[in-house]
């Protein structure tokens, strides 16, 4: 079972809660915020494997006639072909690795696909006694899209185990990719006008993708912003964590929240497992 943690807004406590939950219920932790993977700081994993995530980009061969059909058909303007001077130019920052150019090329074997690494997938364990898996995607600096990395991580998840998927902020393609894989979505909310605004946007997405959902209210200061949201949208509250300077200080030192707020985390975990129907031993 895959449980995704999303928030819309950044800094509301996704990683804090995802690593805290993984630690509390011995779930595999999967860091899918490949732009800024930070879960490792809170779980202290032992990485045993690091593989490149590769995508395929086109390269022409000596069979190329420089007809330019590939460049004309490319929807991402990633190719320019010049017949006169026999140039085949790929702008790989624009390439989406869709393979269209190879498909539409009228000459056999005139374009071949070569691999390019866009980042790494690191895996290992974070709890030596219990062999709990840790996986993280790390996007290479300068690469624009983490989606191929996330897809590769998803294809290796073990469905029979409990996996906590830590998402990137926002509500664009990488977040869609994470929610797609989820059996249950946890909203990590911050009860401020910013937090509510962004939570509503990502919640729209969760609804459109038809996933069961629950809410954790983080940095709770006693106002009703998110309680009202929960009532309005009929989203169950799994628990609350108070706004507290000492939590921020512990976060800064990468201390796992489950070590300090163990009561809250246990309470949230119980509610979460009840809602998802997952039996945890």
């Amino acid at each position: 079972m895959n449980i995704a943690i999303v928030s819309g807004k950044g800094g509301t406590g996704k990683t804090t809660l995802a690593t805290g939950l993984a630690y509390t219920i011995n779930a595999n932790y999967i860091d899918m915020d490949a732009g800024e993977p930070n879960g490792r700081h809170f779980l202290d994993p032992e990485i045993s494997k690091s593989i490149d995530c590769e995508v395929m980009i086109p390269e022409n061969t000596d069979k190329c006639t420089y007809c330019g059909i590939c460049a004309n058909k490319c929807q991402f303007s990633a190719l320019a072909v010049i017949e006169k001077t026999k140039k085949f130019m790929l702008f790989d920052d624009l390439c989406h690795h869709c393979g269209l150019c190879v498909e539409v090329c009228p000459v056999k074997d005139a374009i071949k696909e070569i691999s390019k690494s866009i980042g790494k997938i690191n895996s290992g364990i974070f709890n030596k006694q219990k062999n709990i898996n840790f996986v993280e995607g790390v996007l290479k600096i300068g690469e624009t899209s983490s989606v191929p990395l996330l897809e590769q991580i998803k294809s290796n998840l073990v469905k029979e185990q409990l996996n906590i998927l830590d998402s990137a902020p926002g509500s664009a393609c990488p977040v869609v990719s994470v929610i797609e894989a989820a059996d249950f979505v946890v909203l990590a909310g911050e009860p401020t006008p910013f937090g509510l605004n962004d939570l509503e946007i990502v919640f729209e997405l969760v609804k459109a993708m038809d996933k069961p959902v629950g809410l954790i209210i983080n940095k709770y200061m006693g106002n009703d912003l998110l309680h009202d949201f929960s009532k309005r949208e009929n989203v169950p509250i799994l628990g609350t964590i108070p706004f507290d300077r000492s939590i921020a200080e512990n976060y800064s030192k990468s201390i796992n929240i489950a070590e300090l707020q163990s009561k809250e985390l246990k309470h949230i975990s119980e509610n979460l497992l009840k809602l998802t129907g997952y039996h945890y031993e």
Binding site: G68, F76, S77, F91, L94
Partner: peptide
């Protein structure tokens, strides 16, 4: 026709120039 594309408009425009010889 590419005026509103957000990426790669320069490549398209340059390619048009190339095709016009």
């Amino acid at each position: 026709e590419y005026i509103n594309d957000a990426h790669g408009v320069g490549i398209k425009a340059a390619s048009i120039a190339v095709n016009e010889n």
